[in-house]
Write a protein that binds this DNA or RNA. Sequence first.
DNA 1: CGTTCAGTTGAAAGGCATCAATTTAGGTGG
DNA 2: CCACCTAAATTGATGCCTTTCAACTGAACG
Lengths: 243, 243
Amino acid sequence: MSAKPNLTPLPGACSACTVRPFALFRVVPQARVGEIARVRSAVRLVRANETIRDTVFTLYAGWAFSWTTMPDGRRQILDFHLPGDLVERSEDGAEVSALTDASFCVLARDRLCDFMGRDPGLAMSYAEGLSRDRSRLRERLTSLGRRDAVGRLAHLLLELHGRLLRRGGADRTGAPLPLKQAHLADALGLSVEHANRALALLRRQGVASLQKGRLEILDRAELEELAGWSSAPAEPPLVTVKV
Amino acid sequence: MSAKPNLTPLPGACSACTVRPFALFRVVPQARVGEIARVRSAVRLVRANETIRDTVFTLYAGWAFSWTTMPDGRRQILDFHLPGDLVERSEDGAEVSALTDASFCVLARDRLCDFMGRDPGLAMSYAEGLSRDRSRLRERLTSLGRRDAVGRLAHLLLELHGRLLRRGGADRTGAPLPLKQAHLADALGLSVEHANRALALLRRQGVASLQKGRLEILDRAELEELAGWSSAPAEPPLVTVKV
DNA sequence: CGTTCAGTTGAAAGGCATCAATTTAGGTGG
DNA sequence: CCACCTAAATTGATGCCTTTCAACTGAACG
């Protein structure tokens, strides 16, 4: 029973951080990266399915997701987190778990607040992240409210593909996607069985397939059609700050 | 056919603003209210159902709501806005409309950004608002994903009641609520008919009633039970900034 | 080679949408 | 103050989408 070897990279020096261009601290000029290191209180590595206790962190490698449960135990996934995302475990009872093996930098909330207090650009970067989260949630709300199972699935696949594309984690025809069908179901408000059927339909129709952790987009036009996709970007540009 | 008289109050001087304690500018000390006035580019009054074109404003009186439509025309209401709320019309195609007659202060985005650039506390106040929006959306997502019609309705009624309570716009047993059943339906991802049936059930069971623009909470314990209500506040306290 | 988890598939039941009317509530003009 | 008109609220019947319950398959693993 040898422990599974650990292939997940750990975050190193902030100055050479590979995800910083997509992360909260993207606005901090190279000359001041030293200040970032002082906000980082720890570096951590977790295994898939482990729940994360830290309240504020930026994901470095791997995926995570936020979720809640109903009194009857059913789960609702609120959001998926990708490398570079700032994740906050809020006080409202939502939990955060690793979807894959993952590593991240824990931030000290008070020192982060200090930093934002000194650097309005950073505060605005923080706000941008919140704003993006919000529009993603709005899209999902629309999905759950007004789309059927296939539409929801198509929409989520497009959203994730887009997010990965922007970070260089995907090409036009597909991307690695470590989600189980249970994750899709819980994110889309469906039963696992029905999520499976919707996925099977997309596959049979030659629209898209998700197998062995990889998404293949076979007919993007049709996928967008099924999703009722608005060409508008899911992560729109937001307020820009002058400092 | 005389025009309906206008009873909606218009915002006046920022220094005496009645909603400021709940609004973005709550963090600006009285001594500096002058700076707020420079961010306000206009004061506006709209009639119920009118759509609002301004991109950033803080609602002063009346209700508003954000919404989108699917290609087939069905509407999804994304959020309701109450007096004091900062509202942004985002670039993602969502629209904002007045739910009742309403008045608001239009803000100049660039001057607002300037202000936030100078005042980190204000930037954090902005972020807090975003964060609250986000947790509200998360709650709603959970509703649409995992609650049945009655549960969704119960949850939304409790959410709105709570928001009103915090602003002094409600008492423990009820509150004025200007929503039509169609608004409830479109917010909850239901048909109007089914929203009606759910509402009728709550009324028949003596749990809550919504009539003539007023919500009455008759049995809060039961309403919370139906909603799967977590005692956690819907608008939790967030990061605090030191300036 | 047994176990377990993810993925599939089928059948039956249920919740919600849809379609169709009807009633009620407000607002308007006479 | 009443008749009238339109939007909102109701109620009923029918059908579809999704859930639920029950197996069953396949792959990974010890």
